[in-house]
Design a protein around this nucleic acid. Structure first.
Length: 421
RNA sequence: GGAGGGGUGGCUGAGUGGUCGAAGGCGCGCGACUCGAAAUCGUGUGUGCGUGAUGAGCGUACCGGGGGUUCGAAUCCCUCCCCCUCCGCCA
């Protein structure tokens, strides 16, 4: 959410940012709501002031035994007028609030302007694509032949897009979670949390999934609760409506993630690339606004560390203004090379939200003057499991159909780094 | 799920219709005393919104959330949420 005062004071700068983001927002309508709200507010507060003053007087006069009937009648009229204008103010506030909630964050000055993914910029890459002396298999072929994932039974239990990991596949999933959490907690200074994966509407609004992404989430009508699409939601909302004693705060969490992928029907339907449920280790930061862009760089580096330890080739893209998510001011995507797909797979998205989420969620700290200020929030996948699983299989595949896993996973896989038939 | 009790400022804890943003205590800031400290004394110490110069000040709202009664609500009524105790069910 944006500061209405900033929109009021710098509407042109605001319009420009929205244009770069390729969204149509009627800024004048917002400003008009704001102006009408303030007018009504001033009017009603003047009346309330009168009522408060007179009411005190009534108390005193009544004690003195005076007749207060006429003045009470007069106040009744004012009271009616107050509730009338109060309703007006409330309506305007609700309208303004919902208008503001629909406005996306603006791109940071360092973000390249562009319309869509084709205009994202590769900022660096790491590792070499494996030179396989045979035709690479897809992770689906590998996983099925080695008994790592049972797609059919997953579909039977729940539906397509709900993979059932089995045997060494299930163990690999668990090993990766452990491996990543260990690095983030012992080397990168994050505190581990294990949050609820079911959240209420206020939490979804706080991080910006609601109202815009409603149709992409699993919603339980009976209890008005949502399955989380990412740990970002419960973890960021840990400090909703709080003033933090000290910043920065770094949190990491493993959770399953649930996505309906409503707009993606028919795309990437085979295998693990686009699924309704997947595991993810998430990194979340609450920081001083002055340092948030440095924090974004280290955040991306921490996600990259995981991939480097696993020896997987990747590239880092800076998203252009038009391709960034609703809440982000600046974002890097990290993509792994997958030989079986002959393409890149996004396994991490590292974003600085500046105060956009903090303002929605009411997360503040005290500056050097002791004044409450909004923190900047950041998060990044560190990293997403299903696609990492794909990349490990497809990059590690051997001619005989077995998988050679990175040495770093040895301790987490019971000492073995080979998955054979 | 049933019965009962309770949610007040950073913490504790008063306050059951009137000058209450809210006593007292603790904590914290500043000052005095002191060579310094402790103790003591004095003084200050919430947040949002509006207005104003993103100052001072002023106004308004906030005592779990929302609504109602009233000239006036922390206080009375309704409703929802959360916490505690007991019972039931259950991994």
């Amino acid at each position: 959410m944006h500061d209405i005062r900033r929109i009021r004071e710098q509407p042109d700068q605001f319009r420009e940012g929205l244009k770069a983001k390729h969204v149509e927002i009627d800024v004048d309508a917002i400003l008009d709501l704001d102006r009408r709200r303030r007018e009504s507010l001033t009017e009603v507060e003047t009346l309330k002031n009168k009522r408060n003053t007179v009411s005190k007087e009534i108390g005193i006069r009544k004690k003195a035994g005076e007749d207060i009937t006429p003045i009470r009648e007069e106040m009744r009229v004012i009271g009616d007028r107050i509730s009338e204008i109060d309703n007006q103010v409330r309506e305007l506030e609700v309208a303004l609030e919902s208008a503001l909630l629909a406005v996306p964050n603006l791109p940071h000055a360092s973000v390249p302007v562009g319309a869509d993914a084709s205009e994202n910029v590769e900022v660096r890459s790491w590792g070499e694509k494996p030179d396989l002396p045979f035709k690479p298999k897809t992770h689906v072929e590998l996983a099925e032949s080695l008994g790592l994932v049972d797609f059919e039974r997953g579909a039977k239990i729940s539906g397509s897009g709900f993979p059932l990991y089995t045997g060494a596949g299930a163990r690999l999933e668990r090993a990766l979670i452990q491996f990543m959490l260990d690095i983030h907690t012992t080397e990168h200074g994050y505190r581990e949390v294990s949050p609820p994966v079911v959240v209420n509407a206020a939490s979804m609004t706080g991080t910006g999934q609601l109202p815009k992404m409603k149709e992409d989430m699993y919603h339980m009508q009976e209890d008005d609760l949502y399955l989380i699409p990412t740990a970002e939601v419960p973890v960021t909302n840990i400090y909703r409506d709080e003033i933090l004693d000290s910043i920065p705060v770094y949190l990491t969490a493993y959770t399953p993630c649930f996505r309906r992928e409503a707009g993606a029907a028919g795309r990437d339907t085979r295998g693990l690339i686009r699924v309704h449920q997947f595991d993810k280790v998430e990194l979340v930061k609450f920081v001083d606004p002055a340092t948030s862009y440095d924090e974004l760089e280290t955040l991306a580096g921490q996600a990259e560390t995981i991939l480097q330890r696993l020896g997987l080739p990747y590239r880092v893209l800076q998203l252009c203004s038009g391709d960034m998510s609703f809440a982000a001011a600046k974002c890097y995507d990290i993509e792994l090379w997958a030989p079986g797909q002959n393409g890149w797979l996004e396994v991490s998205s590292c974003s600085n939200f500046e105060d956009f989420q903090a303002r929605r969620a009411g997360i503040r700290y005290r500056d050097q003057h002791g004044k409450p200020q909004y923190v900047h929030t950041l998060n990044g996948s560190g990293v997403a499991l299903a696609r990492l699983f794909v990349a490990l299989l497809e990059n590690g595949q051997q001619e005989d159909g077995s998988i050679k896993l990175p040495d770093a996973l040895g301790p987490y896989m019971g000492g073995t780094t080979t998955i054979g038939p």
